[in-house]
Design a protein around this nucleic acid. Structure first.
Lengths: 341, 341
DNA sequence: CTGAAAGCGCTTACAG
DNA sequence: CTGAAAGCGCTTACAG
């Protein structure tokens, strides 16, 4: 392989001069710089990443920890991953993707061995076992998802409480007084998926304040189970005039459920979901929804992470916990309460 | 950070002895091995990946190049990625995920800089610009997807020709004589997505052999366009008694289309798709389908790649082009031709 | 069975 | 403005 020594030799300079000419970290005469650049091009030189990492203690790689759990909706995860990956590349970082079931172990492995300069954690749980490891690691970490304890980490998430309130307020303003909220599976809650109860609790509170009857249930993450659940719910609550969905699989299943029941949106039933616009487009979901903005969250997390990586780790800037304000994308699926189903 | 020097010192041996004790590459007295292991545990030592890579020319990282194109169905890509990632970890490799639009450039970057020991390419096109770069790279490469020229690379793919014939034969045996085949968007073809025409051409040939009328069209990859296309096709070919889908988005859209038209499967229409069982489960697609086996393909590609990485690169074993035989998973969506729609 | 030394390919003080 | 040298943390011939 061609090394910087070869480049130096070809350019007739020392290795250090060649290195400085390439990094621009000290002033180099235009002529020498030219000779070095020519040699680089002629020889096809690219610095060896391992050697550079060893010398600089910087790998220019970010670790991305994602878990694909049976009871979560995989296509939604992908959006976050792509947001992280795209932003990382813009900032000149590569992505080490880790999908192991044992996330804590995997995290130790890649931080201890210095494979990465920083970490982005997905599927963050309330009491996430990976957090103590991440806090103890020499690399900074950014989370997408709010854990119980944010100490020592930068955290980014959708404001699920506000999302829950917003769903209720929107329906309330239109005149709805009885609603159904379908959340993710209870397994997700048991595993510490705080976003489930953050939205649900806030929605329940707001409903109480507005004297709305809100039937809140956990739904499955798979077809056909979730479709059957939706049917059962509509059967059980014939007076409900609106449906709130914090569950991607439910949203994907709904068109066929409504079709079967001969219900039109928003005439017979108003619907608000919570998912990304990309998701809505892929499945052509015609429901107004709270944008979950996975790309924006990925971008924010990586930007902050890189800032922290590159800030000369001296005066530790305070850690941030940043919530994205939910936005309701209107797709025309809500209106005045129709005939109860 | 704790280095092997610290371990050696704590164990009262030389660095080389510590290294050998850990690698097991030469015989070490039980007692010394014990002391070294204790020191490792006590100090919490993990080898520095960059240093090891520099010394051994092995990174234990595999590059995974995936492209998320507007006109391909992203959730399907994810399955391949997870198959690759899981198998890599089993074999002790990590995954560098590269999703850049400019795949050729990205490939040069990670191979030239020796960030990876090998490469897995996804979304392989007939005349893929990344292939010449990969062939010239010092690392071996494995493809998931068949290009026009397989020279110097290991290639894994579903046997799409056989899949096309199998679809036709299955329908023929049941008595069908007029069918519709919906493939991926024409853009995919123009970009060199050979699997599209491999299946389609084989199906057309086989149909001719069997004197079946086969209406073959390209369909969109998004809703609602693909749904409308399906409606238009069923309108245009009222005598067709079966539908063949080499298009994930079409499969996802079909339930609602059939519902609208009041068609029952297989009574009114027989259907065969081509997608993964995982995909079928996520969307509860009730159609018999040719399993695309993304996990199996990912596994095969990584296994072969690692074998090649670790074979002491001497006597170059011959490169392989391996096709998975299609399997039709029966979900009961085919039967004798019903009343033409 | 073990140690001292060289080397992997970079970067960056230290000198001039 | 440039060079000689040290060092990052490993592994692995070379010697004993």
């Amino acid at each position: 392989m061609v090394t910087i020594g070869d480049v130096a030799q070809a350019a007739g300079v020392s290795r250090s001069t060649a290195s400085y000419a390439l990094s621009g970290k000290r002033t180099i005469s235009a002529e020498v710089r030219q000779r070095v650049n020519d040699a680089v091009r002629r020889l096809g030189y690219t610095p060896n990443a391992g050697a550079r990492a060893l010398a600089t203690s910087q790998t220019m790689v970010i670790g991305l920890l994602a878990q694909f759990l049976e009871d979560e909706f995989a296509p939604a995860m992908l959006q976050y991953m792509l947001g992280v990956s795209d932003t990382a590349r813009e900032l000149d970082y590569d992505i080490l993707l880790v999908t192991e079931a044992d996330g804590a172990r995997a995290l130790s492995r890649i931080t201890d061995s210095r494979m990465v300069d920083g970490i982005v954690l997905l599927n963050v749980a309330q009491d996430d076992l990976r957090l103590p490891i991440l806090r103890a690691a020499p690399q900074p970490g950014a989370l997408i998802g709010l854990p119980g304890d944010c100490t020592g980490l930068d955290v980014f998430d959708l404001d699920f409480e506000e999302a829950g309130r917003m769903m209720i307020e929107h329906m309330y303003a239109l005149g709805h007084r009885e609603l159904i909220l379908v959340s993710q599976p209870e397994h997700v809650v048991e595993r510490g998926g705080a976003y489930v109860w953050r939205l649900q609790d806030a929605a329940l509170q707001q409903a109480e304040r507005r004297e709305i009857r809100l039937h809140a249930v956990f739904g499955e993450s798979r077809q056909p189970a979730i479709g059957q659940t939706l049917h059962a719910l509509l059967d059980a609550h014939p007076a409900a005039t609106g449906l709130l969905l914090n569950n991607e699989a439910a949203a994907a299943a709904l068109p066929s459920v409504l079709h079967t029941r001969g219900l039109a949106v928003p005439h017979d039933l108003s619907v608000i979901g919570r998912y990304s616009d990309e998701f809505a487009r892929t499945f052509s979901l015609p429901y107004s929804s709270i944008e979950s903005a996975p790309d924006r969250l990925g971008r924010m997390a990586v930007r902050q992470l890189v800032r922290r990586i590159e800030s000369t780790e001296q005066g530790e800037e305070p850690y941030v916990v940043r919530f994205i304000s939910p936005e309701l994308i209107d797709r025309g699926s809500t209106g005045a309460p129709g005939p109860a189903s």
